[in-house]
Amino acid sequence: MTWLIFAALFWAATWYLNSWIANGPHAKTRAAKLAVPVIFGITIIVVWEALVRGLQVPSVILPPPTAIAAKFATSIPILWQDFFQTFVKGALSGYLIGCGAAFITAVLIDRSPFLQRGLLPVGNFIAALPIIGTAPILVMWFGFDWQSKSAVVVVMVFFPMLVNTVQGLAATDSMQRDLMNTYSASYWQSLLKLRLPAAMPAIFNGLKIATTLALIGAIVAEFFGSPIKGMGFRISTEVGRLGLDMVWAEITVAALAGSAFYGIVATIEKGVTFWHPSQRG
């Protein structure tokens, strides 16, 4: 009971603190913008811990954060092995191949308006389909190891990336292209100096969407068969053994890896598209 009262009080106190900061005079500062979500996150974790303890929720349903942290700390070698298998071997290789192939395809079809008009609607259509369903097929073709996960990731990231790159390459207006023409710039010169730089915001949009898709693809593909390591494998087997603290530890790794991956791509974007209005803010 004390735990429950503590949870309610803690929630009320931090909520009051947050609304005081948010409605106060310093709400627009960087520190406030960082502090408020951090306080909220800490509140969630503390309330979660207190509720699990107070209501005596069995750990096979929801383990408390401290148990997850303890499991995380003691099983770092396994987590690292799974991370390496799923993220580096499966997701990252597929991401590079898929985005690279989509980029090259986009530059090639950009030369033909006919192909552009045909491929864009088809690509948009395919990007909206449940492509994850191809996972069992690709696992059958490429075997249980990381190659099949990489293939699933390639298929998943290809179309979003293609559509975004093609749209980006069309982003220049006719005035800018005319200027390149008056300079008598060749195709390659205008591509490298005008159209690719102008396409970068859209390309990075595609790259950012693809980061999440890559991780999802690699993990879900492991549900259809994998060697005895990998994040998806660990999640599905530990769930079967009701080792929920290990599952949450893997989810933490997935969340950290996903956010870090996204963060790295977003940082590169900031450096490359420094001229774009959305970055100058």
Binding site: N18, I21, N23, A27, V36, P37, I219, A254, F261, Y262
Partner: peptide, 22 residues
């Protein structure tokens, strides 16, 4: 405003997390 400042960053960050894994 308080809800905006505390929930919105998490709502955006949660899109980078492979939710399907859970």
């Amino acid at each position: 405003r308080a809800m905006d400042m505390s929930v919105m960053p998490w709502a955006i960050a949660s899109q980078t997390i492979p939710i399907l894994a859970i």
